[in-house]
Design a protein around this nucleic acid. Sequence first.
DNA 1: CTGAAAGCGCTTACAG
DNA 2: CTGAAAGCGCTTACAG
Lengths: 326, 326
Amino acid sequence: MSIQKIARLAGVSVATVSRVLNNSDTVKAKNRDRVLQAIKEANYQPNLLARQLRTARSYMILVMVSNIANPFCAEVVKGIEEEAEKNGFRILLCNSGSDIERSRSGLSLLSGKMVDGVITMDAFSRLNELAALIGEAPWVQCAEYADAGAVSCVGINDVDASQHVVSRLADAGRQRIALINHDLSYKYARLRERGYKSVLHLRDLEYQAVEYASELSSAAGMAAMEALLAAPTRPDAVFAVSDTLAAGALRAIEQAGLRVPDDIAVAGFDGTELAGLVSPPLSTIEQPSRDIGRKAVELLLNKIDNPDAPTERVMMDWHYIERAST
Amino acid sequence: MSIQKIARLAGVSVATVSRVLNNSDTVKAKNRDRVLQAIKEANYQPNLLARQLRTARSYMILVMVSNIANPFCAEVVKGIEEEAEKNGFRILLCNSGSDIERSRSGLSLLSGKMVDGVITMDAFSRLNELAALIGEAPWVQCAEYADAGAVSCVGINDVDASQHVVSRLADAGRQRIALINHDLSYKYARLRERGYKSVLHLRDLEYQAVEYASELSSAAGMAAMEALLAAPTRPDAVFAVSDTLAAGALRAIEQAGLRVPDDIAVAGFDGTELAGLVSPPLSTIEQPSRDIGRKAVELLLNKIDNPDAPTERVMMDWHYIERAST
DNA sequence: CTGAAAGCGCTTACAG
DNA sequence: CTGAAAGCGCTTACAG
């Protein structure tokens, strides 16, 4: 079922078949019909490998997600999908788990010319390695700030957002505010920790406690919260850098027989559906997840069409949602 | 940076470069070193399109997920990833949303020879259309039963599992058990509804109420629960066919000022992390999500290696987890 | 152990 | 409006 066979079937040359396939308008109606007929009869489907090898264009973009199970990531991906589809692009998802071997494997699709560009959501600390693998190919980093190299990126101002949450907790009279953070290989983790610490400093709050979750799951959030509760001085507020972690913290507090927010206030981050589902519902920073995804595609397509386009760093707006957990 | 350039750089033929690339052991050490050196210097990366076009092998499998944001799907995907990786295969994720246009677009990767096979998690009702698109290519349907055509599939016995949940609710003295189902284009939705109804019948329970959620989100679960609560007779138990829906139901019940399980018992399905996170934690059917994914890959690779392998239908074990919500 | 050459299935100037 | 031919970048018998 190659273009050859169709040509034979329709009694025309392969060039003509190709023209029909590509909607060239220079094909005589009769020939077009014969080709279309032959295609249908043979249930012919063009070989993408050959086409892309020839045209050096795939209209596909690779999306390297750090963790597909993270609802925030899923939302961003939806935004990416929407915008890509709107522009005639298809997306291929690769779950890197921020693992460099996996990333390498995934990125071979890029260097191997199967896709036209890549959107990554990997940890900042991996960016240099990624940069080496990606080389000159179109690339946008998403939902994780990149301040080095020529990568365009889109995200929010994590320091500001984090400061806002912690300030609100302090405003409400909380004295001992703890942080449940993700590991510091992520830039956003560093930035949010910076925001947290700066507010403690500004407000002369002495208590400071940071627990690092090994992954963005609520199990990890529970474990972190248990560690905080086991310390000699108990926090009266906890800021978790993701709703998933915060949901786990909630659970741990409940299991310790304490009440939220009476004994301990809990705030999350991301503004995922989960935040509104748990009990009590979580105060959180809502990120414009879909828009982040859409914007990333916009930047990437721009880069694909125009390889010399300057590097862009886009900051999106966030806002704080106050709920019963604080 | 083609194999040509490397050949020139290393002073050998393209055949020799290709042999080095493919770890052929018939290359003299000196030549191998020169090639390797040239590859490094030029930062050469082979063009996958050309390679796959030539070899008709990609070592990639396509995974069509119906909804990437569904935690159960995410777990299955992890199982798929693990098993694929173990066998030297890479996976490409496509979020079809059970939309036929999206599916068509994704499946062009298959017909276009970019991947060696496909694992779908699409709705049963779409299977015929999919079958037409997929043709003879290796294909396994996952977590959704397929009883027609030559598709292999792996899942659980949904009727049994559903009967078990409803029986337990009835055992506990619940008289008015409602069902929150997904739309009936999914076979599992039909099967679970069948299980539900058969138990009601068997136990001579008169009350019967089924609400259909438009999607697998907790918002849809809330809406469904609100509809159930608005009816003249209120249920005293609800079985939701996914934990996400059940979590939404929980929220709706709470907002109506009722208590779980005192006023209404709630049971979910899937055994996702979410079920243990909400309050009260959900009784649920635990599916062996990872194993389902692994098994699907096993069947698919078998089909790829041996196209005439017979169709297989594998049923995995499930078990019921009882928690405070019932 | 190595190289020249054919061929995978397309697209696209080019000539007519 | 159409076809013959070159070429995208690989791999792999085949001959030496």
